[in-house]
Structures are given as C-alpha cells and as structure tokens.
C-alpha cells in the first residue's frame, strides 16, 4: 500500500510562453484533506489537470495511490475521482441519467450502479430532484451533482477544483460538510481554492501556490507561525487617520501602523495588550476611535507577507 494518496514530483507545464506550473512538489497523505490555496492563475487547475491525466506534464511525474500517472495511467485513474472546476455534466439529461452514465464510464453496472447512484443522490441531497434536467438546476445544485459524479466508483482519492466558486451559501455549506464527511469515511482529498476560510476549515495541511510555484506548505498553524503571529487591528477614527497612525507607531507593542482606505491598520504581536494603549494614545492626541476590528493571524496574512499581495483582488 502506498504511503501517500498523491505524490507530486517536480511537475512542470508551460503553455507557449506562460509557465503555468513551474516545478512543484507536494504530497497528499492518506486520509487527509490537503488544500492548494492560491489566487487566480496560480496554476492550481493546471496541476490538477496533470494529476488527473488530462494534460501531459512537460516534466516530472505524479503518483496516485502509488501508480504513476504516466506509466500506469489507468490504474491511477481508477483510484481517483475528479471534480472539475467548471460543471461538466450533460444539461439535457436528468441528474440521475448523468450519474448513471458517469458510473458506467467508471465500469459500474447493474444493481451496483443503481445502488451507488441512489447513495450519491442522497449524499448530495438531491434524491428528490433526481429526475430534473441538469439544465434546469441552480448553480449550487449543479455543483453538487458535479461532485457526486466523481464519487460513484468510491475512489480512494478525490480531487476537487474550486468546487464552491460562485454558489449560494447553503450549497457551499453543504459541499464543505460533504467533504468533511468523505474525509471521515477515509477518503483522501486534494482540494483547491482561493478562499482562505475554506482551506482553514477543511484542511489538515495546506500548500500556498503563486505563479506556478508552491511558496509555502504545512499545517495552518505552521504556516502562520512562519510569518510570526501578528494580529491585525483595523481601526476607524474621527479626525485624520494619518495623524492617528503616526501617533500609534510610537505605542509599545505596535510593529506597524498604516492607513488603508481611510482606516488605520495596526500589526501587533499581542493585540489584547495593545488595544487599550491605542485608546489612551488617541485620548491624549485628541481624537476618538469609532470602531475596532481585531483579526487573528491567518493565511491571508501569510500570503500577504510572502507575496506582498492580497489573496483576493
């Protein structure tokens, strides 16, 4: 038995002059949820297309449950369920017909197939709408069927490429819970997203990708520790924010104070200790604080400090 569900080794892929994936390596351990977190165009989908056998890498290899995607592609694919980023279903067919078809493609048939289809419809909460044509479904419903289609053959590993983009909160919640449930049942998951919150909620480990490279990886806490556990305090003030920032830079415990969009952003190692001092300083300088927002250190901060850019534009 392979130790890792997925092992990615030095994968590269370029489209003419765009290097979409520039030599990435990571592994998804058995039984874990591993997230690839990165902004648009980071190369997440390209990496996933290579692992799922859609694209040939320019160099490097990937193993799925120990099977090389290049040398044993069929064996690798049998262990793998792929949820594509865009909904890939037949819109003129019903949810059930779609699942039956995709199940057949995975080699299921007869009673097994029907039973699996029933199970998956129930799992994604669409048993009652199974006869409805996909074309008539909402975005969230389509995405749920899109996921179900990848799980029919009970794969050991499932890859989900941004499965929650552009859908309603209810469907999103449903999907996140479903991923957790699959993981509880022992499925290994490679999950890509550019939503930090999703990566934090779901993952055992995370790799942050940018411009075709993995720039950091580890558990959430490891990543946060990497950049130092600085909390961010956002403050709105009456009066000129520039003057407030200037005053606060002198306050003990404040490592940085900048003005962003009319508010003052303060970085501090210990927010609880610093905030009362900020109020004192404001009172002395003769202005008031109208709101305070303390943000614990998170992946957003990590990405910001590693790249100097926000995760989302």
């Amino acid at each position: 038995m392979a130790e890792n569900a997925i092992e990615v080794r030095e994968l590269t892929k370029a489209f003419s002059d765009v290097v979409a994936v520039g030599g990435i390596s990571f592994e998804v351990r058995r039984g874990e949820v591993f997230s690839l977190l990165g902004p648009n165009g980071a190369g997440k989908s390209t990496a996933i297309s290579i692992i799922s056998g859609l694209l040939r890498p320019d160099s490097g290899d990937a193993l799925v449950m120990g099977h090389s995607i290049l040398k044993e592609s069929m064996a690798a694919r049998r262990c793998l369920g792929v949820v594509p980023q865009e909904v890939a279903l037949y819109s003129d067919m019903s949810a059930r017909e779609n699942l039956v078809f995709w199940g057949r493609m995975y080699g299921l048939s007869g009673k097994d197939l029907e039973a699996r289809v029933d199970e998956m419809l129930a799992a994604v909460g669409l048993a009652e709408r199974q006869k409805g044509r996909i074309g008539t479904f909402s975005g969230g419903m389509k995405r749920r069927v899109n996921i179900a289609a990848a799980l029919l053959h009970s794969p050991a590993v499932v890859i989900m490429d941004e499965p929650t983009v552009g859908i309603d909160p209810q469907s999103r919640r449903h999907i996140l819970d479903h991923v957790k449930e699959l993981n509880r049942q022992g499925m290994s998951v490679l999950y890509t997203t550019h939503y930090m919150e999703e990566a934090e909620e779901l993952s055992n480990r995370i790799a942050i990708m940018d411009k075709g490279k993995v720039i950091a990886s580890g558990t959430r806490d490891e990543l946060v520790r990497m950049v130092g556990e600085q909390a961010r305090v956002d403050l709105a003030v009456t009066g000129e924010p520039d003057k407030a920032a200037e005053a606060w830079r002198k306050v003990t415990g404040v490592s940085r104070a900048t003005v962003e969009q009319g508010r003052v952003a303060v970085l501090a190692a210990d927010a609880d200790a610093v905030v009362p001092r900020l109020f004192e300083s404001a009172a002395q300088a003769g202005f008031h604080i109208s709101s305070v927002d303390i943000k614990e250190p998170n992946l957003e901060t990590v990405f910001l400090s590693l790249t100097g850019r926000a995760l989302r534009d």
Partner: peptide, 14 residues
C-alpha cells in the same frame, strides 16, 4: 466546450 469531454478523459478508459 462543456467540459464533459475533459471529464470523460479522466475516466479509466483510453
């Protein structure tokens, strides 16, 4: 265009 061909290509079928 619909992505179903790509999905077919991820199936364990040549």
């Amino acid at each position: 265009e619909d992505g179903t061909l790509a999905r077919l290509f991820t199936m364990p079928v040549g």
